[in-house]
């Protein structure tokens, strides 16, 4: 029971990370991106190659994924949004879908369509086994995943609420025309938000990739959709909402597996989200715009 809770929190913390990136991007640009799952997938593959080619190190894999997905995020922002600022929203949406298909196909070209895994000789150096606390078995890999996600969430919180860049991102999210009139280069802010959101997605990819040790070109599709859904369930513009929704979905999913519905776990998690939205149509933290001021 407690083990399932830990499993669920581990899984959910990665959903939360993805949803945070999605929320940051949507909150700032007021635009939906459907390439988020594929940025996650690319992050996973970058981590995979780093571990395979250089060293079985989480830090190295995450650093490389951060750099590559940040660049990729800026490229997506420029292609799908910057050049289409005056176009209808649907146009940008379609371009992000196009980019996601392109990324999947490129991955198939480079790595092949089959599922890849890190060789066990290398993986053993990353996976330190498990330990027992009061009869509950926790793996060190889970601790690593949870630590990284909590650190990133804390980093994002401080960045958004305690720095000038964060204040400018919030101001731009709230009224980009007014920010522009104050002299803010809003294009740079949009790209920055996209880069940060994508970095969170990229790290999520590394974490899940290593956690399950499965890498395949379409691995981001379901995750992208779940991130989007978690973001909506959280209230769409609420960073804390994304975290809570992501964790909840992870836990619900794992308990569905525990109760024997493992083949139906995605259905269960989406049904759960529909249920929440039926009760609170604005999402858990909806109605409040939470890329907002700090409360002191």
């Amino acid at each position: 029971m407690f083990e399932q809770l830990i499993n669920g929190l581990t899984q959910g913390s990665v959903y939360a990370l993805l949803a945070l990136g999605f929320t940051l991007i949507f909150g700032t640009l007021r635009m939906v991106t459907f390439a988020h799952g594929e940025i996650y997938m690319i992050g996973a593959y970058v981590g995979f190659e780093m571990i395979r080619l250089f060293a079985p190190s989480f830090v190295l894999a995450i650093m490389a994924a951060l750099v590559i997905t940040a660049i990729l995020g800026v490229v997506v922002e420029i292609l799908a949004f910057h050049f289409l600022r005056d176009a209808p929203h649907v146009t940008s949406l379609l371009v992000t879908i196009g980019i996601s298909i392109l990324l999947i196909n490129l991955t198939q070209l480079i790595w092949g369509p089959e599922t890849k895994s890190i060789p066990y000789a290398l993986l053993d150096k990353l996976d330190y086994g498990e330990f027992e606390v009061w009869g509950v078995y926790i793996t060190y890999l889970q601790i690593a995943v949870l630590t990284v996600t909590v650190l990133l969430m804390a980093f994002l919180y401080l960045l958004i609420n305690r720095t000038k860049l964060g204040m400018v991102i919030r101001a731009t999210a709230q009224d980009y025309e007014a920010a522009y009139a104050m002299g803010v280069n809003v294009n740079v802010v949009f790209s920055t938000a996209f880069a940060i959101g994508s970095m969170l997605g990229g790290v999520a990819g590394v974490l899940i990739g290593v956690y399950y040790n499965l890498f395949y070109p379409t691995m981001g599709q379901l995750y992208g959709l779940k991130a989007f859904s978690a973001s909506v369930v959280g209230g769409l513009m609420s960073l804390p909402g994304s975290v809570v929704a992501g964790l909840l979905i992870g836990v619900v999913e794992t308990f569905a597996v525990e109760l024997g519905a493992s083949s139906m776990r995605h259905m269960v998690s989406f049904l759960f989200m529909i249920l929440i939205l039926l009760i609170r149509p604005g999402g858990l933290f909806g109605g409040r715009e939470l890329i907002q001021a700090r409360g002191d």
């Binding site: 919030r170 709230q174 920010a179 104050m182 715009e289 907002q292």
Partner: peptide, 29 residues
């Protein structure tokens, strides 16, 4: 703005969810 022209926008257009102090800081962007 850097050259020395500063706007008070129509309908004020404060950043609604920033604090008053943060709004001032945005003015000094």
């Amino acid at each position: 703005v850097k050259a020395g022209i500063s706007p008070v926008l129509e309908a004020r257009r404060l950043f609604p969810y920033l604090t008053v102090l943060e709004n001032l800081r945005m003015g000094a962007y």
